[in-house]
């Protein structure tokens, strides 16, 4: 190619780039203006903590029936679909055997009662979450204000790195449009779309209006929720006075869900 033509093309390219910068700068200026006028704040009733934590008193649950209302409450208000195909299953909170919930912790001969009893499992809202480390877009993140590990469904690209990273199998993926499989839609809460990952959000939307998580509210006192770093909190009181375990503690993720066995 002849060199003057090349030069002209280069100049054209550069000026196009230059022109495209201006709207961006304008946008920044406008945003600053808008911030000056309107304000954003927390709700007055919102509950706050340094790190939300949950204590599950496993002694209070004997069978699946005892857990059903909790799971039902959660899945109902969060529009969690019921998919028949096991591969497409979506769950935020569910139960499993002791040796599945706590692999490596089950002794060869276990108390009959522990072996038979189901155990509640959900996202641990780890203090050092590997899923957050793995996410390439910060679509899953640890909220600085209260330590909840949250999903931004608008941003998730569906790469499922977080699912590989989670040692607790807490995450589900929308393998298809979930809407047709939601029996009764809670109109206050959004559904999800196909192609994004979802999981328990510790009921961030309820905490914002001063309510405890749905499973805790439905548990009749068997689940306790509170601030892990407030020495006077109810969860700390329970941890202090009972022997508690956490799932896969050796991995160093620091789960925030404690179990009284």
């Amino acid at each position: 190619m002849d060199s003057s033509r090349r030069r002209v093309l280069q100049l054209l390219g550069l000026s196009a780039l230059g022109l495209s910068v201006k709207p961006v700068l304008n946008a920044f200026a406008e945003e600053a203006e808008q911030q000056a006028q309107a304000q954003i704040k927390r709700g007055e009733n919102a509950l706050s903590a340094q790190q939300w934590a949950m204590v599950v008193d496993t002694r209070a649950f004997e069978s699946e029936d005892d857990f059903a209302p909790l799971i039902e409450a959660c899945h109902k208000i969060h529009n969690v679909p019921v998919l028949e195909n096991k591969r497409h299953e979506i769950k935020w909170i569910w139960t499993d055997h002791f040796h599945n919930a706590f692999p490596g912790k089950a002794a060869r001969f276990l108390s009959e009662e522990v072996e038979k009893r189901p155990f509640l499992v959900l996202c641990n809202h780890c203090e050092n979450p590997p899923c957050v480390r793995a996410c390439p877009t910060k679509a899953t993140f640890k909220r600085e204000s209260d330590g909840i590990v949250l999903m931004d469904f608008h941003r998730c690209i569906g790469c499922r790195f977080c699912m590989a990273a989670c040692p607790f199998g807490a995450r589900s993926f929308n393998f298809r449009d979930p809407r047709p499989f939601i029996k009764e839609t809670n109109k206050q809460f959004p559904t999800r779309m196909k192609g994004v990952v979802e999981k328990c959000n510790f009921c961030a939307e309820r905490l914002a209006v001063g309510q405890l998580p749905a499973c805790v509210a439905a548990s009749d006192g068997a689940l306790t929720f509170g601030d892990l770093y407030d020495p006077a909190s109810e969860v700390r009181e329970l941890i202090r006075t009972n022997f508690t375990i956490r799932r896969k503690q050796t991995l160093g993720t620091e789960p925030s869900v404690y179990y009284i066995v």
Binding site: E31, Q39, I40, R42, L150, D152
Partner: peptide, 22 residues
């Protein structure tokens, strides 16, 4: 659209849910 974008970011990511208009 910018307003809604601001809303979704502050609700989802910061947990601040109240908007005080001018």
């Amino acid at each position: 659209m910018q307003l809604l974008d601001l809303w979704r970011d502050s609700v989802v990511r910061q947990g601040t849910r109240i908007y005080v208009s001018p």
